[in-house]
Design a binder for these strands. Structure first.
Lengths: 95, 95
DNA sequence: CATGACCGTGATACTAATACCGGTATAGTT
DNA sequence: AACTATACCGGTATTAGTATCACGGTCATG
């Protein structure tokens, strides 16, 4: 085995990650945010829906910049999201 | 065209990114840091040498946690690294 | 010199990320 | 009803990230 498939935990983390991004996007459209971040709308949709659970670092960085999010808080939120849903509310009002 | 190859700029950014990580690692060995971050030493080596210029977000997040780095500063440093080398010095003393 | 432990590296294998295309559904507008 | 805009979904193509294997270098010890 050379390239270990993603574990269910990683996929669940990707889903939480996508939910956070979608909440931060708010009322803005996918194409607008994707264009602002410099990636295709399909890629943004896959990330938000959890179908791309482990996106590239600079993809996330560009997305966070377009959404005005902190990478540190983003990583912490979806890493701890399995325990508390409280941080999601912070993102909703901050993003 | 389906999956656009990485541009030379992205590869250069990946090299700067790897240099920052290697500086932050300091005297610690690859295997130690890789184990602390939960990835293989070969993967860390590829990232540090720039042969994996766009690593996954959570890989970088785990690495930054193992090295005590801020994801925001890391992204900013290697994004602006093409202009100023000053931030590298900050990482050298901070990491 | 031989042996072993540790580190870094090159080659290979295989999965995942990204982009493009077509189709579908829903809601809003005229 | 027809048109538009948005989002979801499946499939396809191609590059890139990650892990395993095998090899060479280094340093300490015998």
């Amino acid at each position: 085995m050379v390239r270990v498939p993603l574990t269910p935990e990683e996929r669940q983390r990707g889903e939480r990650f996508g939910v956070l991004l979608r909440q931060a996007r708010g009322e803005r459209s996918m194409v607008e945010v994707a264009a602002a971040a410099g990636l295709s709308a399909e890629t943004l949709r896959k990330i938000e829906t959890g179908r791309a659970p482990t996106p590239a670092f600079f993809t996330v960085a560009a997305l966070a910049a377009a959404l005005g999010l902190s990478l540190d808080e983003l990583a912490a939120a979806c890493a701890e999201g399995q325990f508390t849903q409280g941080r999601a509310a912070e993102f909703r009002q901050a993003g």
